[in-house]
Design a protein around this nucleic acid. Structure first.
Lengths: 342, 342
DNA sequence: ACTTAGCACTCTTTCGAGTTGAGTGCTAAC
DNA sequence: GTTAGCACTCAACTCGAAAGAGTGCTAAGT
């Protein structure tokens, strides 16, 4: 059954009023504040219909209506007015990115802070995935007799480095040699391919340097780790607690408990393949976030998706504003990544 | 005025009962549970005395007593029984450290998790301070035509590295040269000295490489930064919310708000110079933590203090247990640092 | 002189009853 | 199809009474 134009208007009014006030919305309120030119009684009839169709819910008989997940979904897909851009503080976003940041980690930390501050919600960023990046080169620099620095540069321009242990007395020439063999074997492969192929046994040349090769493996595995727990950045947990829906300590605790498990967050965000995705309430798989909505976006370096950024808040979030903010921040962030790193 | 032996016993009973139950303790409870061989009436007299002396407080006339800050302080200093070590899960701590961890950052993250899990409180670790470490050597490795890797190794064995931009077309030989000049000038100085001296103008030799020198400065400044905001690690915020004293959302929010400001945490912990320090309630300067106690300990690499680890919980925390855990973890952590890094 | 039983008193907490107010659903008239 | 009117429902608030925990004081006991 399709919604006629007046039903749409009523639904929209209810969603927007509820977003603004966090109180169930009654027929009288709608008739008064949003002039649809009909009386409360008419609105009541419409509301009864909308409830029957599953777009609205009633906390109890003598309360107003609140949107159901389906109601929010319809609002987001069909009714939502494009965001009034004047309500977004473009300047504070832009100025944050004007400061030059060299480390990718600081850039992400800044991004997550900007996101949480301009949405008053929780913000999450998943650090770049390396699985599809290709090995450009791998190099070892001797530091001490027993330590060296390993640097992995990928075609996306990301350079990861790590200290490794080397057998006492390894000569710089030997390190160079190991590097050359590895480069010959690995260059051009994606990190995922590298992790999944049996390159380790490839060469008797490296038999003597097993401990080094193992450490290379470790780095690669850390970079492509399935659970990605190491690469979750978060800010604004405090904002969660200011929402009236989390006055209940136990709800708040359940959610914060989830947030401490980086891995869970990773799994929540990872499946979002689309550029922009909105999940409302029960649409999220995890029970802990069934009262929340998530607006997430992939970010890119060049063509390929490198990670995700997201904003989480109550289902009753200001979708239109938050979608805009997420898009804007994703844009600046991707662009900054490209410039600084590519 | 000194406390006679019975008063001490009463105070101890009250503190311990309150720690266990979070409820104000009445005279009857004490007479029943802790057999001091006297009647509730006698205990009441003692309690009135203790209150007058400032060791106890009464939430309202018809409630039992709770310890004041002074009461806790006396308990911690004079009454506290050494912790029953069987209540600590040594094995789970030890096993965490048995897994070999190469990165100092992962080690800290693990430590903070272990601390929070074995205390059920919030755990904080301040990353190592570099101010007193001495430059052992500084080196540049060319990566791309416009990027190089800078590595700083200190006498404490910590190696920090960072990507830097170099002017297009800089030759490897030039980089080597810059490294040599810098080493000649800086080797042996503490990072604090380096930051505060005017070494940057030292040499016309480096005039052409100003941008590189600037990036060296940036790294040094980041490592010795006064506010240390970058180096605060935390786990177990969720534990805070399980404490009955934070059922009140606004209190919880105030505290969590503080926790989001790494800098504040840094300032809370930094002044603790002693090996082990306990701050109770109002003894902490910041209002946000006036309902909390903090057990902190410095950790060392060799002789010198390198940072702090701490546990924060309600004033009503199990001091004796938490002190033990902090000491144990500090021990294993310092030892692991020394072995892996020194 | 210290201890203790007894008792009146205080103050919070709990519970239920009554009241208010917001909002609905239905019916009948427009 | 719309609307006014009205009875009905239910959460939220208020109030007072009762219960319960604990105290402080007094007077008697050791």
């Amino acid at each position: 059954m399709k919604l006629d134009s007046r039903k749409k208007k009523v639904l929209q009014a209810i969603v927007e009023d509820y977003i603004a006030t966090a109180e169930p919305v009654g027929s009288r309120t709608i008739a008064r504040k949003y002039n649809l030119g009909v009386s409360p009684a008419t609105i009541r009839n419409e509301m009864a219909d909308l409830e029957e169709m599953g777009y609205l819910e009633q906390p109890h008989t003598s309360a107003g209506r609140i949107p159901s997940d389906l109601g929010y979904r319809f609002y987001v897909d069909c009714l939502m007015a494009p965001c009034d851009h004047s309500s977004i503080d473009h300047e504070s976003i832009a100025s944050a990115y004007r400061r030059k940041v060299r480390e990718i980690e600081s850039l992400i930390q800044m991004t997550v802070r900007v996101l949480s501050e301009s949405t008053n919600c929780l913000a999450v960023v998943l650090g770049p995935q390396f699985g599809l990046a290709r090995v450009q080169y791998l190099q070892f620099f001797p530091l001490f007799s027993h330590q060296a620095l390993m640097v992995l540069v990928t075609d996306t321009g990301l350079a990861e480095n790590r200290l490794i242990e080397i057998p006492e007395g390894t000569q710089p020439g030997e390190l160079l040699h190991v590097g050359q063999v590895l480069n010959r074997t690995l260059a051009g492969l994606t990190l995922d391919e590298v992790s999944s192929t049996a390159w380790r046994e490839l060469s008797s040349e490296l038999a003597r340097y097993r401990s080094i090769v193992e450490q290379v493996t470790e780095l690669l595995e850390a970079l492509t780790a399935q659970d990605g727990a190491e690469r979750v950045y978060m800010a604004g947990t405090i904002n969660i607690l200011t929402q009236p829906e989390f006055r209940d300590i136990d709800k708040a605790r359940m959610l914060l408990g989830l947030l401490e498990k980086n891995q869970a967050l990773y799994h929540l965000l990872k499946p979002k393949t689309h550029d922009l995705s909105i999940s409302i309430g029960e649409e999220n798989q995890m029970v802990e976030v069934r009262d929340c909505s998530l607006v997430s976006s992939a970010y890119h370096i060049g063509q390929s998706t490198h990670g995700h950024l997201a904003v989480m808040g109550p289902r009753r979030m200001d979708y239109s504003r938050i979608v805009s903010v997420v898009q804007i921040v994703e844009g600046v962030f991707s662009e900054t990544l490209r410039k600084n790193v590519g």
